[in-house]
Amino acid sequence: MRPFKYTHVNTVQSATQLVSTHSNAKFLAGGTNILDLMKEDVERPDELLDITFLKVADIKMITEGPNKGGVSLGALSNNTETANHELIRLNHPLLTQAILAGASAQIRNMATNGGNLMQRTRCPYFYDVDMPCNKRVPGSGCGAMEGINRMHAIFGWSSKCIAVYPSDMAVALAVLDATVQVANSKGQQRRIAFTDFHRLPGENPEKDNNLLPGELITAIELPPNKFASHSYYLKVRDRASYAFALVSVAAGLELNGNNIVQAKIALGGVAHKPWRALRAEELLKGKEATEANFQAAAEAEMNQAKPLEYNRFKVELGKRAIVRALDMAMNNGSK
């Protein structure tokens, strides 16, 4: 870990101003990812702006949104309090499950909602500074492309990068049609649709998301949803807990009797961002909620995948996971 200046910031305004004027400064919230990466020498800020002392009212509240059932999540609320907040548990249980599928109790007590969106990939070539990685050092090449890419993307990757986005929470947020609220140093607010927040790697894998320099996430807003009683977050992994996803599925079904008014599905562990399964959603719209229809939708979605040498299994696993998650959503998550 390189030497860095440690600075408390007290207002959103001063935080965004400092990060704009100090070119190599970064925000410190829960620290669960950035300190890990600084110890690995992957992240090398020369200043950390500790935003955890910002006022509760500015950025740490979980409050009911303007529409009944809508919720605003403070960016600095931690994962545990978010997952267990009654507004979330009762109205957005999918988010509760997704958050609780990630990391460990200790980490969720530290990690913040904003920080969760700012996580970096767990690609081992990104994490090891002695390996090539276009995300870490643009132009150095992708170690994973011809390497051990079992954990890597099957959708939306580019010749520059095949990393996947590691968050579970974000997969649920993609389904919940969340909006990310950000502030900049001029005191302006901006809202970004969640599905536009993260990027595909394209030519610039060093950019994980569409935040502009100097912007700070202040809140994540969730509109009311109509599938609170028919949703499920399924995570498939190499061990039962405390492991990143091979494939995960967030599924929500808005039903009219046994008819699907609308299905919302997103996949984790398969792309550089939470992957909305739009083709599957489209196919399910207006259909009966049957195993055969789930199967057809999953096939249609996963058949678009472009697997790599060691992750072909994710195509079949994705199909099965989508069907299973939809089944579970039908049963309201009962196992």
Partner: peptide, 24 residues
Amino acid sequence: IIDPRWGNFITRSLADYHVPANLD
């Protein structure tokens, strides 16, 4: 797992090398 191009372990942390956890 070793990457044969370099001879290094790419499973170089306890997040990549999975010792069983309690729930296992």
